[in-house]
Design a protein around this nucleic acid. Structure first.
Lengths: 103, 103
DNA sequence: ACAAACCAGTTTGTGACGCAAACCGTTTTG
DNA sequence: CAAAACGGTTTGCGTCACAAACTGGTTTGT
């Protein structure tokens, strides 16, 4: 078993964090989600969710659009092309890991 | 997609850390490994490796045996039953995640 | 009309963590 | 007998995840 092959060394830490992996996974199925929807689905606190969204945006993995629904603020997120690519690559690494460790 | 099903909420953080995942994966194939062997395989610094081994031991996932090879200290590690179980459970969660996200 | 409660988030504080550099006691080498 | 090497451990530091506190605005109650 080559440990280079395991590819664990260069796992994307942005996506590796479980809370963010969950967010990204959700976004990968839905192409638009507002803050409160994400909060309900992830069960994260607002503060926590806000921070993770900030990191994902800063990494260029999601786009955050701030608008209004009536008079209330509304934050809408969607995966960018880079985000989708990073997610897919992360999944591939997991698959590779699982595959390598199952023999 | 139920996010409960993704099981990302209760990923074992001890094992989730890539460096430790690598260590545990190696130990799962070898049933005994000394410090320097692990260092060569993981390419971690000594300090880093020492700290991670400490956490794994504290978690009850590995047993650390300190002996001597001739006159030099020799640290030998092996996975405990709990460690093996935790590793297998972690792999199962990854498999479940991959499976859930591939449809 | 004015306070109290609510909404949709952001900022702050804190404890834990990952990492490498510095260190330590011992042993071999020049 | 210095000095470098061995086999690690401890320290220091920047970063992070998390929840509590806060903010700016809106609705509700009286």
């Amino acid at each position: 078993m080559s440990h280079e092959l395991l590819g664990l060394g260069d796992l994307d830490r942005i996506i590796h964090e479980p809370a963010r992996l969950l967010i990204v996974t959700i976004l990968s199925t839905v192409e638009k989600a507002d803050f409160l929807f994400l909060q309900r689905e992830t069960k994260l606190t607002k503060g926590n969710l806000s921070a993770h969204l900030g990191k994902l945006e800063e990494a260029g993995y999601i786009k955050i659009e701030k608008t209004f629904k009536g008079k209330l603020p509304l934050t809408i997120c969607n995966l960018t092309a880079n985000g989708r690519k990073a997610f897919e690559q992360y999944r591939q690494r997991l698959i590779q890991f699982i595959d390598t460790t199952s023999k």
